[in-house]
């Protein structure tokens, strides 16, 4: 148990620093922003109670907000995302399957299911964050372009990170 605790603590700090120091400065083609810190939330075990998932997600978003000067934006998106995560997970894993102890990754879910799960969650988060950032539909085409391109970029990066982690463990 304590090993997992240390693992998630390191993951939290690593994702926060990666996002703040590297990914916040990358904008591909002026539209695509990699949002990799959500990997921490995506990877939280399904057995963890929703209260904890909410709290950790909020903290993650709050810390990213402080580093990137976007007050409350990521915190709000992460809180809603924490609720959506479980729903998305049950969407691709039928209820009768025993998945209470599962930590979502390629090795536990299989490639196809994990890809579906990852793509949906990143799309969900990117939609949330850009909706909150623009807070109007006046720049709709630009917003949609940013949502789609950012989700694709984030999806590819997270898939890479996950396969790296799987190979090590």
């Amino acid at each position: 148990m304590s090993r997992e605790l240390i693992y998630y603590a390191i993951l939290f700090v690593a994702m926060l620093l990666l996002q703040a120091l590297i990914c916040n400065h990358i904008v591909l083609f002026n539209v695509a922003v990699p949002i990799i810190f959500i990997y921490f939330i995506i990877r939280l075990p399904m057995s963890l109670s929703t209260n904890w998932v909410l709290t950790l997600s909020f903290l993650m978003g709050f810390c990213v907000d402080i580093f990137s000067d976007t007050p409350g934006m990521n915190a709000l998106a992460c809180t809603i995302f924490a609720i959506a995560r479980r729903k998305i997970f049950t969407l691709y894993n039928s209820r009768d399957e025993h998945h209470a102890e599962i930590v979502p990754s390629i090795s536990t879910l299989g490639f196809a299911t994990y890809c579906k799960y990852l793509l949906t969650t990143t799309l969900c988060y990117c939609t949330l964050i850009f909706l909150i950032e623009y807070f109007s539909f006046s720049h709709l085409p630009m917003m949609l372009l940013k949502i789609v391109s950012s989700s694709v970029l984030t999806f590819l990066l997270l898939l890479g990170i996950d396969s790296l982690m799987a190979r090590q463990s």
Binding site: F58, G61, P71, M73, A75, L76, T79
Partner: peptide, 16 residues
């Protein structure tokens, strides 16, 4: 859970 959720949402909206 819902109370915690609403609390966090309100907190972030205040910041936002």
């Amino acid at each position: 859970t819902w109370f915690i959720f609403i609390f966090y949402v309100l907190l972030s909206c205040t910041l936002l």
